[in-house]
Amino acid sequence: MSKDHIQNKIRMLRFLKGEMTQQQLGDEVGVTRQTVAAIESGKYSPTLQLAFRIANVFDVTLDEVFKYDPLNDQFKKKK
């Protein structure tokens, strides 16, 4: 299932934090490197708690990391 309706800037934020690795981010938020890779690539949506942990690592707000695109959401409200 594609998660195209939820986009993230994790890769860019890792780059701006001195090329932080996926492993380092995973260690800081309590998940595996594979989970970080899946979130980054849009194959997995994190729990709300994990999303907040990720934002906290980068000292940014949740909406600076994740963006919801309702136009690509198959469950969007019909008008």
Rank of each mutant, 00 (worst) to 15 (best):
Leu16Tyr: 10
Glu64Ile: 02
Thr61Ser: 15
Val29Ser: 04
Ile10Asn: 00
Lys43Asp: 07
Gly18Glu: 09
Leu71Gln: 11
Ser2Cys: 01
Met1Arg: 07
Leu13Glu: 05
Val60Met: 06
Phe52Leu: 14
Ile6Leu: 15
Ile54Gly: 08
Gln24Val: 13
Lys77Pro: 00
Val60Cys: 06
Arg11Gln: 13
Thr21Asn: 03
Lys9Leu: 08
Met12Phe: 10
Ser2His: 02
Glu64Thr: 10
Leu50Met: 14
Lys76Met: 11
Ala38Glu: 12
Ser2Ile: 06
Tyr68Lys: 08
Ile6Glu: 06
Leu48His: 13
Arg11Gly: 08
Asn72Leu: 15
Ala38Asn: 14
Ala37Pro: 01
Phe75Gln: 09
Val60Phe: 05
Val57His: 01
Glu19Ser: 14
Glu64Asp: 13
Glu40Gln: 00
Phe15Met: 10
Met20Lys: 01
Lys17Asp: 11
Gln34Ile: 07
Arg14Pro: 00
His5Ile: 03
Gln22Asp: 05
Asp73Arg: 09
Lys3Cys: 11
Ile54Trp: 03
Thr35Cys: 00
Glu28Gln: 13
Lys78Cys: 10
Pro70Tyr: 13
Leu71Ile: 07
Gln24Pro: 00
Ser2Phe: 01
Phe52Cys: 12
Ala38Gly: 05
Glu19Ala: 08
Thr35Lys: 03
Leu50Arg: 09
Leu16Ser: 06
Asp69Glu: 15
Lys79Val: 08
Gly26His: 06
Asp63Thr: 11
Lys79Tyr: 10
Asp4Trp: 00
Leu62Gly: 00
Phe58Tyr: 12
Ala55Leu: 06
Gln22Lys: 14
Phe66Val: 08
Phe75Ser: 05
Gln34Ser: 13
Phe66Leu: 03
Asp59Thr: 09
Thr61Val: 06
Asp69Phe: 15
Gln22Trp: 00
Asn56Tyr: 03
Lys17Glu: 08
Arg14Leu: 12
Thr61His: 10
Ile39Asp: 07
Ala55Gly: 12
Gly26Pro: 07
Gly26Glu: 04
Lys78Phe: 14
Lys3Glu: 13
Val31Ile: 14
Gly18Tyr: 09
Leu25Lys: 09
Glu28His: 07
Met20Glu: 01
Gln24Ile: 11
Asp69Thr: 03
Met12Thr: 10
Pro70His: 07
Phe58Val: 10
Ser45Lys: 14
Leu71Thr: 15
Val57Ala: 05
Lys43Trp: 05
Ala55Pro: 11
Glu19Gln: 12
Leu25Asp: 01
Glu28Pro: 01
Asn72Phe: 04
Gln23Trp: 04
Tyr68Val: 10
